[in-house]
Simulated scan of single mutants.
Amino acid sequence: MFSLKHSLSACLVLAYSHAVPALAADAAAGAEKAAMCAGCHGPNGKSSNSQWPNLAAQQPAYLAAQLKAFKSGARTNPMMQSMIGNLNDQDIENLAAYFAGQPAAKAGGDAALVKTGADKSGMCLGCHGAQAQGSAQIPRLAGQHPGYLVAQLKNFKEGTRQGGPMQSMASTLSDDDMKALAAYFGSL
């Protein structure tokens, strides 16, 4: 269950996400820049490798925020930092608009775990949306690679990835819980 502290953190994240002015994005310009992303994230943002997330249909504000975090070093990944080092804020907004406009991916998940994950998913859906579609700076989980989701949950739990209430939420999950939730969200 969310505590008052978690609820306040979530409200602050949402308030901040609505207070940040967005640049007018050009999805066509983003499509031109997206070629550099295809090697890992796949054509049209649909990755065939569970190590890298699907970007297709992801929330544009979330994508832009993550790219800016990689660029600033607030979120570390040497590959991502080298790939986006020369992008300006407009390029980032354009990429976010392009990927957000792509049809959603469906990664699938271990059928034996999907039911268990569905039963546990309520703890996630309050922030990530009833269909795990995300909103504003809350990421879409639906159709994401289960392996990627498990890795990110572990990173939140270990503290190597920071992010609002996610560290507290992940700290309550066992490895089996993470696998079941990831399977469920990948199946959506």
Rank of each mutant, 00 (worst) to 15 (best):
T172D: 13
N49S: 10
Q162E: 15
Q51Y: 02
S171P: 15
R161K: 05
P43G: 15
A118V: 03
L149W: 01
L63G: 14
L87T: 11
P43D: 15
G39W: 03
S48A: 07
G85T: 11
P139E: 13
P103E: 12
V20C: 01
P78E: 10
S17D: 04
K106F: 01
S3T: 12
A64C: 07
D89K: 02
A22L: 09
N77E: 12
A24N: 08
A10V: 08
A19K: 01
G147V: 04
C127V: 01
F99M: 11
L87W: 04
G109S: 06
Y62E: 14
A104I: 04
Y148V: 14
A183Y: 03
L8S: 08
P139A: 02
A28Y: 00
C127K: 01
L181S: 06
S47C: 07
A107P: 13
H41I: 11
Q133C: 06
P43H: 03
K120V: 13
P146M: 00
M123D: 14
A111F: 04
G117V: 06
L173R: 01
L149E: 09
S72Q: 10
M83W: 01
A31I: 04
A15G: 09
F70R: 14
L181Q: 08
N155Y: 04
L181P: 13
Q58M: 06
Q58Y: 02
Y148N: 13
G129T: 11
D26Q: 05
L23I: 10
A142V: 08
G45H: 07
M166W: 02
K115T: 12
Q167R: 07
G147N: 06
Q131K: 07
K5D: 15
A56Y: 01
A151M: 10
P103L: 05
K179F: 02
R140I: 12
D26S: 00
G73A: 04
K46H: 08
D89C: 09
G101A: 03
S168D: 15
A10W: 01
L23V: 12
M83E: 11
A27V: 07
L8T: 12
L4D: 14
S72R: 02
A34V: 06
A96M: 00
Y16D: 14
G134P: 12
K5R: 15
D119A: 11
K5H: 14
L63V: 12
G147K: 00
A132Q: 12
K154S: 09
E93L: 00
M166I: 08
G30V: 01
S9W: 04
A34L: 04
A31S: 15
Q59T: 09
Q162S: 13
K157G: 12
D175V: 00
F156K: 14
S174R: 03
C127F: 05
A118P: 11
P139W: 00
W52Y: 15
I84L: 04
K68D: 11
Q59I: 08
D175A: 04
A57G: 08
C40D: 10
K68M: 09
H145T: 13
N86F: 03
M123P: 12
G85V: 10
G42R: 01
A15C: 09
G159K: 02
Q152N: 14
H145W: 03
A182M: 01
